[in-house]
């Protein structure tokens, strides 16, 4: 039956041609899907910069490029150094610092809650808890991360502020209103605990037992092992979890809006109402009806600042992970 002639082997392209073409089409289509994610990133940059331009110059960047005349209406130096933020006011002020301060205050305050509690939780889960306890505790804590942030906002105004912060404020002689900085810090801190605990615990669990045993053999106690062996050995993962939590706190919107309020001011008093960048965005959102107004334009200017801040955090996180990755295999 077989000869050495190539003719009857039929292994050249034609047999499976239709299938191969279909494969190529599928591949192209799937690549299109994957490119959507890149387009999204590019579009975010483009949209934010394009519209933020209109906040400063009155026209969008693409209109400016197309030749629409424009003149600067808000100076960058006022935007970056001014200490009053009221772009929609009759006497407008364009200093973004108060709401940047609001965001940073919430972020730092939340870190004071999430980092100690999250780290201690991670140590307990990784070093002390039995597998049975861990298998219940970990998913329970992750439920905290899954609860919608609007619910945390509700929790702040219906529980934390009236039951804890008001009495505390009265104790210090401050009147505490419906909104206050402290409540915002606490709820954002709580909702970021699982990020810290989960990711830190993963890092701690991947520290090999040989290191622990080595320390125990030298007479170390569990406290020594946890704080002087495991924590240092997993520090990059632990640190990454902090940055992720901070990044999340910066972008957090609904909980801080409901908890901390709408008063753009730089204040050191934790019982005062403040406004974060995200809360400002919520308060200004008017959908399509507002195009061309300063409120609409300011949304994107603030959005750009917010985006740059979280992007910096994400890049920092990336860098730390690559730079300090511990490999235990």
């Amino acid at each position: 039956m077989s000869t050495d002639s190539p003719n009857d082997s039929a292994i050249t392209g034609d047999v499976a041609r239709a299938d191969r073409i279909r494969n190529r089409h599928a591949r192209r289509l799937l690549f299109t899907c994957a490119s959507v994610t890149v387009i999204t990133t590019v579009a975010i940059f483009a949209v934010l910069i394009d519209n933020a331009f209109s906040y400063f110059y009155g026209v969008t960047l693409h209109d400016a490029i197309l030749g629409v005349t424009f003149e600067q209406q808000v100076s960058f130096s006022e935007f970056l150094t001014g200490t009053r933020w009221a772009p929609d006011h009759a006497r407008p002020a364009h200093g973004v610092l108060p709401i940047v301060y609001g965001t940073l205050a919430i972020t730092v305050g939340a870190a004071f809650v999430s980092i100690p509690i999250g780290t201690a939780t991670a140590i307990y889960l990784s070093e002390y808890a039995s597998p049975a306890v861990r298998s219940k505790l970990k998913p329970t804590l992750e439920v905290l991360a899954g609860i919608p942030t609007i619910v945390y906002g509700f929790f702040a105004i219906s529980f934390i502020t009236p039951l804890f912060i008001s009495p505390l404020g009265n104790l210090f002689g401050h009147h505490v209103g419906r909104y206050n900085m402290l409540a915002g810090c606490i709820v954002v801190g709580i909702m970021t605990i699982p990020m810290v605990s989960s990711i830190s615990e993963d890092a701690m669990s991947s520290v090999p037992d040989e290191l622990r045993n080595g320390a125990y053999a030298l007479g170390a106690t569990k406290f020594d092992v946890s704080t002087k062996v495991v924590l240092p050995a997993s520090i990059s993962g632990v640190f990454a979890s902090y940055i992720l939590a901070v990044s999340r706190a910066i972008g957090e919107t609904m909980a801080v809006t409901l908890a901390a309020g709408f008063q753009a001011q730089i204040t050191g008093n934790p019982f005062d109402e403040i406004m974060t960048m995200t809360a400002y965005m919520v308060s200004m959102a008017r959908g399509e009806s507002a195009v061309g107004t300063v409120e609409y334009q300011s949304l994107f200017a603030v959005g750009l600042v917010l985006f740059v801040m979280t992007l910096t955090m994400n890049l920092l996180n990336d860098w730390i992970k690559r730079r300090y990755r511990e490999e235990y295999q």
Binding site: S247, T253, G303, N314
Partner: peptide, 12 residues
């Protein structure tokens, strides 16, 4: 890691 509110701005 992009805040959800930014996705809202993009679509807006």
């Amino acid at each position: 890691g992009v805040p959800s509110v930014v996705y809202g701005l993009l679509v807006l």
